[in-house]
Amino acid sequence: MTDQILIHGLQYGIYVLEGALCLLLAKQGAWRSRLGFCVYVTLLFVLDGVARPAVLDHFGRTSMQFAYFYWLTDVALAMGAFLLTCGFFRRACAREEKLWRFVRLLLIFVFVLVVAISALSLTRHYTQLYTVFIVEFSQNLYFSCLVLNTLLFVMIQQFAIEDDELGLLVCGMGLQFAGEAAGLALLHLTSGGDFARELFSFLNPICTLGMLITWIYAVTKTPQSVPVDSLAGKQTALAEAVLE
C-alpha cells in the first residue's frame, strides 16, 4: 500500500515537472536554438504525461492494451532520446564541421548496430515480440544512448566547450539513461522477476525525476560568469573589516 502511494507520488511529481519544463521553455522562448530539446520535452509530456495516463484510465493497469501502449511509447521515447543525443552532438560540434561529419557516421553506425543486435534477438524469440524484443531493443537503445552520452560528456571536457547548459543537460540525460538501462538489464537478467519488477517501478521514476530536476536547473540557473561589482566588493571588504 505504502509502495503504491510512493510510486503514484513520484509519477505525479514527474507529470508536474514535465508540464513545468514545457511551460518554462515556452516562457523563455529560444525554441530555435534548443529545437531538439524542446521537441523531446514536448514528446515526453504528451506521451508520458498525457497519453499514458489516458490509456491507463481507459483500459486499466492490468490490461494488455495498456501494456502494449506502455512498451510502444517506451520505444518511441527511446528513439526520441537517441535523436536528442544526436542533437546534443550537433550542438557540441557546432564549430567543428569535420568532427561532426565523423560523429554523424558513428551515430548512424550505432543505430544500425542496435537494430541488428535486437533483430537477432527477435529471430530467437519471434513469438514474444512485446515481452522480449521490445524490452531488449529499449535496453540496447538506452545503453547505446548512455555510451554515446558519456562520449559526448568526455568530448565536452576534452574540447573545453564552454556551454554549461549543454553540460548539465548531458548529465541529466546520463542519469536517466543509466538508471533506465540498469533497470531494464536487471529485468532482463531476472526474466522479469518480482524483485526486479518492483525495483524498476521505483528506479525508473526516480531517474526521470532526477533528469527533469537537472534539466530545470540547467534551463533556469545555468552557471554564468558575472562581472565583479566593484562597489559591492568594496562594501564587503569594509564589512569584513568591521567584523574583524
Binding site: L146, G174, Y217
Partner: peptide
Amino acid sequence: ILILSTGLFFFYLQAVCQKILRRQFSQ
C-alpha cells in the same frame, strides 16, 4: 550493461554536483 550503467549513474550524479559547484558568484 547492469554493471556499467550502475557505475555511470553514480558518475553522472557526481558530475551534476561538480557542475553546481562550478557556479560563479559575483564576488
